Amino acid sequence: MSLINTTIKPFKAQAYLNGKFIEVTDADVKGKWAVFFFYPADFTFVCPTELGDLADNYEQFQKLGVEIYGVSTDTHFTHKAWHDTSDTIGKVQYPLLGDPTATLSRNFEVLREDQGLADRGTFLIDPDGVVQFVEVTAEGIGRDAEELLRKIKAAQYVRAHPGEVCPAKWKEGEETLAPSLDLVGKI
């Protein structure tokens, strides 16, 4: 079953953020755009490149009103240790959620039950708490923050402009489509 257009399930998680441990719940997410960025584990190889890419682009996400939540089945203590020992992860200024019980990973259907690790899953949540975008990749395939930003801009545009849709490769400021009988067979 697809999670698209479903509401996120209630959760409560401990996170590491800017030298502090904080609690994050589903209530913290509602009312704003959010990206849940699942990755297999701290102290690994592809994961820090992805989290570093998000960190390098974090200001752009913030300008769009989007909060990033990095999530793995590690604890918030492990996130702190990784943040303190890795130059790449040391740049991260968004919450790193611990999911040692795998509640979030199960809620978002990315848990590898046999390993206790999350797949590489990216979920865009709208201000109503509804999933608007899902991407899951194999372990060896890293994701791109700039492509994620493009998709977020498209989702925000569509939300703000009912009746319009963004075609392939759409970028902010480009033409959109207004689906109608007149367009059938003409694209």
Rank of each mutant, 00 (worst) to 15 (best):
M1Y: 12
M1Q: 09
S2W: 10
I4H: 08
T7P: 03
I8W: 06
P10V: 08
K12W: 05
K12P: 09
A13I: 13
Q14K: 00
Q14E: 12
A15C: 03
Y16D: 07
L17A: 04
L17Y: 04
K20D: 13
F21H: 09
F21R: 01
V24C: 12
A27W: 05
K32E: 15
A34K: 01
F36D: 05
F36N: 09
Y39G: 07
D42Q: 04
F43E: 06
T44W: 13
V46E: 06
E50Y: 02
E50R: 00
L51D: 07
L51N: 10
Q60M: 03
F61K: 02
Q62M: 03
K63S: 15
G65Y: 01
Y69G: 01
V71R: 01
T75C: 11
H76V: 05
H76Y: 07
K80Q: 15
H83S: 02
S86Y: 09
G90Y: 10
Q93P: 01
Q93L: 03
G98A: 11
G98V: 13
P100G: 15
T101G: 14
S105P: 06
R106W: 06
R106L: 10
R106C: 07
E109N: 13
R112F: 12
E113I: 05
E113K: 02
D114V: 05
Q115E: 15
L124Q: 03
I125M: 00
G129E: 10
Q132T: 03
F133C: 03
F133G: 04
V134C: 06
E135P: 02
V136E: 03
A138F: 03
I141C: 09
R143Q: 09
D144M: 00
D144A: 09
D144V: 00
L148G: 00
I152S: 10
Q156L: 05
Q156A: 09
Q156I: 07
Y157V: 06
V158Y: 00
A160I: 09
P162F: 08
A168Y: 13
K169S: 12
K169D: 14
W170Y: 09
K171V: 15
G173D: 14
G173M: 11
E175S: 13
E175Q: 10
L177G: 11
A178D: 01
S180D: 11
L181F: 05
L183Y: 07
V184G: 12
K186S: 14
